[in-house]
Design a protein around this nucleic acid. Structure first.
Lengths: 161, 161
DNA sequence: TTTGGTGCAAACTGTTTGCATCTTA
DNA sequence: TAAGATGCAAACAGTTTGCACCAAA
């Protein structure tokens, strides 16, 4: 099963990372990673907290925030700040670099890739002598559903949020 | 004087906008706009609040937040969310669309333009049927100063922040 | 057994809201 | 003079921190 393989794989990556950096391997940390990789799409801390609570995990928000820092550091998750005040996260492993279309009407987030962004990064680093680490391209507008004016209640709202 | 011309011009745009939309022309609103256009670079609400207080304007944070909504709506300012939790703003009038390089070390924000971003917007709208309103491309990394490891205290910190 | 990690609650920060007062139209 | 806008302070939401307890190494 692909699902199990991915879980095994990321758990091992995380385990190695913790060991290499002298962090302890706590059950909470692995449970959080497991929960993140068991779901699809974007999430925020509160969502993750509620989901884990409802599954009777004993976790605190503080630990979630702490663990996200570790997962960001070993690149198993990515953090985004779209427009709202809160941070959004997504799985990073086996999930190629991509950018985001954000619908201003329904809040849906859609992923896309365009190779030209790579060329822009290259130019910036060569011409402006800026050492690129990562980028975020957010294109805001109306998704096809919202252009058609379909009333909000007929649609799945915020599939990725 | 260019400075005065710009001020006159944006004040007129704002005045027309307020009138057109049935909003009142209060001295606070024009003072805020004036203060924004009298300074360069990016700013956040707190910075603007402190600056206006120090000039003995009697403004509240609430009015600043309210007025920013109006200025965003008539496109005299743009709002950005880089990585930190707070919003940053910049003048939008007579300031061509551009993107941002954000230094992870010193927090400095540098502007740049690349025509290929326009092509990406076009492709997204044609191929994915997404009606683009605006975009934000943030490239994070190290600015040339920080690559050279110059200690932070030798540099101007956060010139644009 | 030591020290880093945890849960909880309190603190903090940026933003929004409620309300009495003021002021533009 | 009535609807909107204001300043202030309290409320709010997301995140961080302090601390006593717990458990990996």
């Amino acid at each position: 099963m692909v699902q199990v393989d991915t879980q095994d794989h990321v758990q091992r990556i995380f385990s190695d990372y913790l060991e290499r950096n002298g962090h302890r391997k706590t059950p909470e940390r692995f449970a959080i990673l497991g929960e993140i990789y068991a779901q699809d799409g974007h999430f925020d801390i509160e969502r993750l907290y509620v989901r884990m609570k409802s599954k009777n995990y004993r976790v605190s928000r503080a630990t979630l925030y702490n663990t996200m820092e570790l997962l960001l550091d070993c690149e198993l998750v990515r953090r985004h700040r779209f427009a709202s005040d809160k941070a959004h996260f997504e799985k990073a492993h086996a999930n190629r670099q991509h950018d985001h279309l954000i619908c201003e009407q329904c809040g849906r987030v859609q992923e896309f890739c365009d190779p030209r962004i790579q060329q822009i990064r290259k130019t910036v680093s060569e011409v402006l002598h800026f050492q690129v680490q990562y980028h975020a391209l957010h294109i805001h507008g109306l998704c096809s559903d919202c252009q058609n004016q379909r009333p909000a209640h007929e649609r799945d709202r915020q599939t990725h949020l």
